[in-house]
Simulated scan of single mutants.
Amino acid sequence: MLTFYTNPMSRGRMIRWMLEELEEPYETVVLGYGADMNAPGYLALNPMGKVPTVVLGETVVTEVAAICTWLAQKFPEKGLMAQDSASFYRWMFFAAGPLEAAVTNTSFGWKPEGPEQEGRAGYGSFDRVVRTLSGYLGNHDYIADGRFTAADVYVGSQVGWGMRFGSLPETDAFQAYWNRLKDRPALIRANTKDDALI
């Protein structure tokens, strides 16, 4: 059985959604911040001392984008891996790299100044990241295959949370994309479980 290490106030919520989409049995282990996540037993699984982590037998997977992708590939019969793997991987890595970095840096009050810093930052600027993702979603209902995949769990979570907490603007494309995702039964089940834990 899959074992899912999480905290309901973490990125683990994304993996809870993914697991609910799979409808495979899994065990949840809730860890508190601090001592729990830095206990030797857990650090042996995830030396970063953070959640989420998923374990199946001897296999340990960390990092949300990696977990979503691995689960989609581990259970191909669930249909959560895209045939269009180029778009799937492109936007998974975009969300894990440029989007995450741009949102985090902006929330800390730092933004690249001028072309040299924009080049060194890798993502260019927050506005460029938003324009790029919003532009893509303005022309595509989903990340890949024209249907829901694991990439939508990851990218969609970032878009939904970003708009909810004001770290991403509410563009028309972002709102329309999130509206296609927010009422999925698996997401509702996941949120109900995590909200109950809080």
Rank of each mutant, 00 (worst) to 15 (best):
Leu80Trp: 10
Gly12Arg: 07
Ala150Ile: 04
Val159Glu: 09
Ser125Tyr: 13
Glu21Gly: 07
Tyr33Gly: 04
Leu22Trp: 11
Met37Asp: 01
Met81Val: 08
Phe93Thr: 03
Ile188Val: 11
Ala144Leu: 05
Glu100Met: 09
Gly138Asp: 13
Val30Pro: 04
Trp17Asn: 01
Met48Gly: 06
His140Met: 12
Phe75Tyr: 12
Lys111Gly: 06
Ala65Lys: 11
Arg147Gly: 03
Phe126Thr: 01
Pro115Ile: 04
Met14Ala: 13
Arg128Asp: 10
Phe4Cys: 06
Leu99Ala: 00
Thr28His: 08
Val61Met: 15
Gly138Leu: 14
Pro40Leu: 11
Asp183Glu: 13
Asn105Lys: 03
Pro112Phe: 11
Pro169Lys: 09
Met81Gln: 11
Val51Arg: 10
Arg164Asn: 08
Gly49Thr: 02
Glu24Gly: 07
Gly162Lys: 04
Gly109Ile: 01
Arg184Gly: 12
Leu22Thr: 00
Gly97Cys: 01
Val129Asn: 01
Tyr154Thr: 00
Arg13Cys: 05
Gly119Tyr: 06
Gly34Thr: 00
Met14Asn: 07
Ala196Ser: 03
Glu23Trp: 09
Leu187Asp: 05
Ser134Asp: 14
Asp195Thr: 02
Trp91Arg: 00
Phe174Lys: 02
Arg164Cys: 08
Met1Trp: 14
Gly124His: 06
Asn179Ala: 14
Glu113Thr: 04
Met81Glu: 12
Gly32Ala: 03
Val64Leu: 15
Ala72Lys: 05
Asp194Gly: 03
Tyr123His: 08
Thr106Ile: 08
Val155Glu: 03
Ala96His: 05
Glu170Thr: 02
Val51Thr: 06
Thr104Trp: 15
Leu2Lys: 09
Pro25Gly: 06
Tyr89Met: 14
Ile143Asn: 07
Leu181Ser: 06
Ala151His: 00
Leu22Tyr: 09
Tyr26Ile: 09
Glu58Thr: 12
Glu118Asn: 02
Arg184Glu: 10
Ser87Met: 09
Tyr123Arg: 07
Asn139Trp: 10
Leu133Ile: 10
Asn7Arg: 04
Val153Met: 06
Asp152Val: 00
Ser87Phe: 10
Asp194Ile: 05
Phe93Ile: 04
